[in-house]
Simulated assay, not measured.
Amino acid sequence: MTRGLSGTSAAGTQAGAPAGPGSLAGITVVDLSRVLGGPYATQILGDHGARVLKIEPPQGDETRGWGPPFYRDDIAWYYAGVNRNKEVRTLDLRSDEGRDALRGLLAEADVLVENFKPGTLEKWNLGYDVLSVEFPRLVHCSVTGFGEDGPLGGMPGYDAVAQAMSGLMSVNGTPETGPTRIGMPAVDMITGLNAVNGIMMALWERNASGRGQRVETTLFDCALSVMHPHMPNLFGTGKPAARTGNDHPNIAPYSTYATGDGDLFIAVGNDRQFARLCERIEARELVEDARFATNADRTAHREALRAALEAAMASFEAVALGEALMADGVPAGPILDSAQAAAHPHTRHRGMIVEMEDGYRGVASPVKMSRTPAAYRIAPGSDR
């Protein structure tokens, strides 16, 4: 049984939506993945009604020990964050008995998700070439670092390494800090999202063909795919992107700006919003300044623009100004820490924190569905 924090009901569903099976009810997923990308993908599927059987080796998913903090004696909050709505089973796939038991589960499954190093399942005679014959309707999703072939094929992949090698790290930070890792495992989680996309496309296609297929997502590919607008800018100019801190490379003003009592992020996307910003901070003269007439002009003179804006905003408070700008149709907001974000009234209103009776708290599904909402049925680490 779960209970929600203001936006979720006693059944752990989206506020105002009827309880019941999710949109993926009837789909069974065998989850052989561990750490983050694969488990994040299977938690999404589980939140929306799929039955997820999480298969762990005898020693467990290594992230059980990635604490403190610990959710339970043997489960770190790291593990808990991506492993709800799963039935945990233990199998030793290095043994004949474990592999036979897995085949028994796959016979009733729709989807297999795994993130073994390429060649591992083949060594156990469980590779896609074998399983696709034994279970022709099975959708086999593989999450790896670099894929199984090519110059880096089979190499181990980690989020930060993918950030480094895709260019993501090179555009994060400032000239003073040097290349900087994004402060959360963006590549792992993007890869998990793409795994879900691929699985859903394969299940949809199976309705017509009656056949499963292999879905592959890699950290390297997914990291490259989100290098926007830096890759398009490279293709257009031939020059690699520089580190610009919080400044947007193509838009101004689009950055963090100092006010009288703290920083405020302002994201102006067009001339109309710029005019409204200047009106709100009583700096109407900036609209008439030729240096700031268009976005191209403002980008070319971004440092002069910053100085003028911050001088005008020195008499304003960040939170109040942000709220006023948002009401004016100008995207803006104060920089919150994780605790402030979790406690924000809009977080509560959107039902984005879910609680379970054993002390589990987690970020709820961001996908809101009117008839088949997400539901939170099984606490992380539960054996069923």
Rank of each mutant, 00 (worst) to 15 (best):
I55F: 06
P136H: 13
D129T: 14
W66T: 00
L91A: 10
R84G: 08
A50S: 13
Y128T: 03
I55M: 11
G46Q: 02
T144H: 04
W66M: 04
F135H: 14
V88I: 15
V52H: 10
G147T: 03
V88A: 14
E87V: 05
W66I: 01
A107Q: 12
R51D: 03
Q59N: 13
H140K: 12
G46F: 11
Y78D: 10
V82S: 13
L121A: 07
V111G: 00
G119P: 01
V143S: 06
N115K: 01
L121Q: 04
K86G: 03
S95Q: 12
Q59L: 09
D100Q: 07
D92L: 02
G60C: 09
A101I: 01
A50P: 07
E56H: 09
L126T: 03
H140D: 07
K117Q: 15
A107L: 09
E62G: 06
L131Y: 04
D96Q: 12
W77L: 13
S95L: 11
L112I: 05
G127I: 01
L138V: 09
Q59I: 01
Y78F: 08
T120Q: 08
H48D: 06
R84H: 12
D149M: 09
G98V: 00
D73K: 08
N83K: 11
R72I: 08
E122H: 10
G81P: 06
V52I: 15
K117V: 07
W124A: 10
D61V: 01
Q59Y: 08
L102T: 07
D110L: 01
K123F: 07
D92P: 15
E114A: 03
A107D: 08
L121I: 01
R137T: 14
D129C: 11
F135G: 10
F116K: 02
G81N: 11
D100G: 05
A50T: 07
V82E: 08
Y78C: 05
G119Y: 12
V113F: 12
E87K: 09
S95K: 10
R94A: 11
R137L: 05
D129L: 06
Y128F: 11
G81D: 08
G98Q: 00
D92Q: 00
V111Q: 03
F70E: 07
K86L: 12
D92A: 02
D74E: 06
C141N: 04
V133A: 15
L53V: 15
G65I: 05
G81Q: 07
E56Y: 00
D96K: 03
D73S: 14
D96Y: 07
V88D: 07
V130D: 08
D149K: 13
D73N: 11
V52R: 08
L102H: 05
R137I: 09
P118F: 06
G81C: 13
T120P: 10
Y71F: 12
L126C: 09
G127S: 00
